[in-house]
Simulated scan of single mutants.
Amino acid sequence: MYLADEAWPDLESYLDAESVALVPLGSTEQHGPHLPEGTDHLIAEGLARAAADRGGYLCTPTVNIGVSPHHKQFPGTMWVGAPEFRDYVESFTRNLTYHGLDRVVYVNAHGGNIEHLQEVGRRLYDDETAFAVEWMWDESIPELVDELFAENGPHGGPKETAMIQHLRPELVHGDRLESARDGGVLMSELEEAEPDGRRRGMVNGARVFYDAADNTDNGVLGDQTDASAAKGEQLFEAACEQLVELCDWLSARETEELRPKPRR
């Protein structure tokens, strides 16, 4: 069930019996010359809505803009500050608990959101308001990702390319996949040592870069030519299955199991 499509009398009867909500979150940021800026939130929304339909859960509207200042040099990237993002997510999650939804899955598709969603979950857990967890789609199926792609990449690489080829093929610039690869960076190249023995972007154990533009001229990593809609469908179906199982697990827990244990 998609919350924004429903009238309140229908939601009232639904909320009387259910306690789990899926909240899709992503970003609006560069994903290289071949993918749309909405890549992350398109993936998050696709997975959240499919899992909600298949598992009988509630899906909220999507949070389309996340913590993305590290992509700011590329035209069109939008972002919010980390404190504002955390406060916003915490606020609307508390709103969900007002309606009886005290088990929340943040269906996330943007790496820059991870630590902030986990922090919000911690706050809500500590004051016993809700049990909210961050879920990142590719982290639920790491073996499959490794199996499908020889040169994967964390941003704009073949896994995200394949997912958008599956979900929204009309938004993928197929004629730019080779230039995306050639103008970006392969993960194997990132792992190679510099002439002085240091890894790229590292000095004496410290990471000395903040922005994507410091490492990749066109904003992407990995071999995009290794992607296909068929691989995207495999990824989507496997991740969706993992998400439904997570929601089933949450739904089956007694409230006491999702609260902090008392002091010893």
Rank of each mutant, 00 (worst) to 15 (best):
A21V: 09
C247Q: 03
E233Q: 14
V67N: 10
A132C: 09
R94A: 07
R259F: 04
G76S: 08
R123Y: 07
R253V: 01
S68V: 07
R123V: 15
A50C: 04
A50R: 12
P154D: 05
P24S: 11
L3R: 06
R103V: 03
D138Q: 10
E170G: 12
L117D: 10
R253T: 01
K159G: 00
L246S: 02
L177H: 12
S188Q: 10
N113Y: 11
E119V: 02
D16I: 03
R122Y: 12
A239M: 06
P262C: 09
L124D: 08
P36N: 07
A229F: 11
L22W: 06
E134F: 01
D5Q: 13
E257A: 15
P75F: 05
Q118F: 01
D182R: 14
W79F: 15
P142N: 12
R176T: 08
A109T: 13
V67I: 15
L15G: 05
G55L: 07
V80T: 12
E237I: 05
T60S: 09
A230F: 02
I114H: 08
E90M: 00
Q242E: 15
L58V: 13
V67F: 13
V63D: 01
Y125V: 05
S179H: 02
L47T: 09
S19M: 02
L177F: 10
L148S: 06
R86D: 02
D214M: 03
F149R: 06
L58H: 02
R54L: 11
L47Y: 04
E134V: 12
E45H: 13
L101R: 13
G174K: 02
A109Y: 03
I114K: 12
R168V: 04
T216L: 04
S68R: 04
E160P: 09
F209P: 05
R207N: 08
G222N: 11
M78T: 04
K159I: 01
E256T: 10
S19C: 08
H116S: 15
H110G: 15
A206R: 14
G201K: 08
N218C: 13
D182W: 04
V208I: 15
E147G: 00
D53A: 14
D102P: 05
M163N: 06
A4S: 14
N108K: 05
G197N: 09
D146I: 00
I43Q: 06
P9K: 05
L167I: 08
V20Y: 08
T129M: 03
G121I: 05
E194I: 03
C247E: 01
